[in-house]
Amino acid sequence: MQWAIVIAAFLASAVEFVEAFTLVLVAGITVNWRSSIVGALAAVATLAVIIATLGVAIVTYVPLEVLRFVIGFLLLLFGLKWLKNAIQRYSGLKFLHDEEAIYAANLEQARARGETRGTRLDPFGVLLSYKSVLLEGLEVAFIVISFGGGGANGIRYAALGATAAGLLVIIVGAFVQAPLQKVPENTLKFIVGIMLTTFGTFWSGESFGIDWPFSDLFLLLLAALYLAASLLLIWAIRQRQQRVAPATTASEAQMLSQKKEARP
């Protein structure tokens, strides 16, 4: 199960860190890199404290049965939310996340302040960077803590995955120095949504005494089942959208011609 925890935490963290990196980049370019990096590091420290205190306290004091129920329940809520958004984006119900557009909008907003670049710590730059990393990282912190459902080691493995993702984004970002728009964010969110839903089902089931066949290996079967169901849903929504589009266009054309005929 450990490898699955590391992968899930790595992918979830990669998505969130890519989003946070866009705003850290904005702060670095419009204000200065010193303020941006200080803000980002402060947010990472805050997140580490949250995970260390809350995570360890939960794993130490809450009985495993209760922990698995609560965490399974929350993971299901969280996982289905991610999965739903990813399916909506794949099927065209929602626009894809565009890091370049977000970057441009935030850059314009920050430049509109009329600040000149300097080397001193700038509160706006620190805060912009801190806020973005903290907000995006909170979901990561929650995911890492929730892997405490797999015992104390679960948090360690999840933290390992999250740290690896964070380092990777920082290294790639430092080389590229541009929004990481080539990262397939929706695909990552789709995979993470399936993994969180799988873990949520598995742990909440165990809390009700369900003895899953093949033990931990059942996680793979569950993931495959949710993947198949999600692909089927994407296909079904796309088909429906294609059927609806011509019908809507036809009815609009009909209304237009009726209006023309009604004119004297």
């Binding site: 289905l80 949520g200 089902t201 949710y226």
Partner: peptide, 8 residues
């Protein structure tokens, strides 16, 4: 499992 899929 059916409950989760039905919710989705």
């Amino acid at each position: 499992i059916v409950g989760v899929l039905a919710t989705l």
